[in-house]
Design a protein around this nucleic acid. Structure first.
Lengths: 189, 189
DNA sequence: CTGTGCTTGTGAATGTGAACACAAGCACTG
DNA sequence: CAGTGCTTGTGTTCACATTCACAAGCACAG
C-alpha cells in the first residue's frame, strides 16, 4: 500500500515526503507511518521527511520486488484474459510468461503475445524460474489446479475463485473474492 | 467470509456445523468463531452446533444482503466485461442493471442482456434504487467518475483501479488492487 | 552563527481483538 | 433415567497494534 502511494509521488517528481503527507493521503495517523518505516531502518531526515527514491528502493527490497517476477496465469476465460492484458502488474515488476487453460478451443490461441497452452503441459515451473501463479478458473476446478501448481513447484498463488484452497505450508495463497468485497458495502450503506 | 463458507455447506445439504468444523475450514481458532457468532445473538445448540440455515439468514440480515441489491457497472473494458458476466455476484444477491462507458465505439452495444450507455447519461441512481457501483475504469479516470457517482446518489463503490479515491463520508469505498495482492506474495515465497 | 519551525524516532500509554479455559447444557446410549 | 461425549457461550488473560507525547536533530532565514 505504501509502495503504491509513494510510487505515485515519484511519478510526480516529488523528492521528499513527510509522514504527515502520507497519513493525509492514506487516511492514517502519522505516528503509524513513522513507526512502520522505523522498522525498515531509520532513514528519514528530521525537518525534511523521507527521500522518495530511497523509500521505494527499501520497500521493494523488503517485498522482494526489486527484480522481475515471472508468473503463470491459469484460466483463459473472460477474467483470465482481462488479467493477462492488465497493465497494472508492470508497476510491481510482474510479467505473465505462461498462460494455461483446459479448453481445447482455447489451446494454441494467443492472448497478447502469449500462446495458451494445455493445462496438461504444465511443466516444472520451478525449473523455469516461475514461482507465482494467478488462478482464474471456476471454483470447482480451483483445488485440483492448485494441487497441480504445487506439484510443479509454484510457491505463491493468487486465487481469484471464491473458495478456499488447501496447500502445503511452504506455499502461500492470496485470495481475491470480488463478490465478497462488494458484499461488504450494503452493510455500511 | 463466514457467509461464503457456510453457504458452501448449505449447498452440501449440511444441517448443522460446529465452530470447530468452521475453524478447520477457514484456518481460524474455534473460540474466535464462537465469539463472533455470539455477537450476532446466541443461537447455537450445545452439543450439536449451529443450524446452517438460521446462521445464513442471520448473517445475510446483518449484512443487509437479504434483498436483491442493484448495482451499476462503470467501464466496459476487458475487466468491466468480465465483471458484467461474472456469475459470482448472484450468490450475494447482486444484480448489475446498468453499464456505462465513455467510449463511443462501445456505447449502444450489449454485454449479456444489458446495453452499454454513455457515462454522460448517468442519471439519478438513487431514484432508480441503485445504491452500489462497480468502478472498472483506468486509474486516471477513477476520481472523476467517482465524483459523478457520488453526485448521482450512489452510496457504495467497489473500486477496481489501483488508486485511492476521495469521497464524502456518507459514501463507502472498497478498493481491490489486484496487482497489490499479487505483490504481497514474493515476500513470503 | 544563532534562532525558529518542522519532522523524525521512540518509550509509554492506550485500545482492541484473539486465545484460553471452563461451566452450562443438549443429545444420544444403554 | 443416569451417564457420557460433544459443543456452546463467556469471563479472563494475553498479545499486539495503534496512538500519544516529546526529545533530538536537520534546514533555512536573518
Amino acid at each position: 500500500m505504501y509502495l503504491r502511494a509513494i510510487s505515485f509521488l515519484q511519478q510526480q517528481a516529488r523528492e521528499y515526503v513527510s509522514s504527515q503527507d502520507l497519513a493525509d493521503q492514506l487516511h492514517l495517523k502519522s505516528p503509524q507511518i513513522r513507526k512502520d518505516f522505523s522498522y525498515f531502518g531509520a532513514f528519514g531526515v528530521k525537518g525534511t521527511g523521507y527521500h522518495v527514491d530511497t523509500l521505494i528502493g527499501r520497500i521493494r527490497d523488503i517485498l522482494k520486488l526489486s527484480s522481475i517476477q515471472k508468473a503463470a496465469l491459469i484460466g483463459a476465460g473472460r477474467l483470465g484474459k482481462a488479467l493477462a492484458l492488465y497493465p497494472g502488474f508492470g508497476m510491481y515488476g510482474f510479467e505473465i510468461v505462461e498462460i494455461f487453460d483446459s479448453s481445447p478451443q482455447k489451446i494454441g490461441k494467443k492472448i497478447g503475445n502469449t500462446k495458451i497452452k494445455s493445462i496438461n503441459d504444465l511443466g516444472d515451473m520451478e525449473e523455469q524460474g516461475i514461482r507465482l501463479a494467478i488462478l482464474a478458473v471456476p471454483s470447482e476446478a480451483a483445488q485440483e489446479v492448485a494441487d497441480r501448481l504445487v506439484e510443479s513447484g509454484i510457491r505463491g498463488i493468487l486465487n481469484m475463485a471464491p473458495c478456499y484452497i488447501t496447500v502445503p505450508k511452504r506455499v502461500r495463497v492470496q485470495t481475491i473474492d470480488i463478490a465478497m468485497e462488494l458484499g461488504i458495502l450494503p452493510y455500511y450503506v
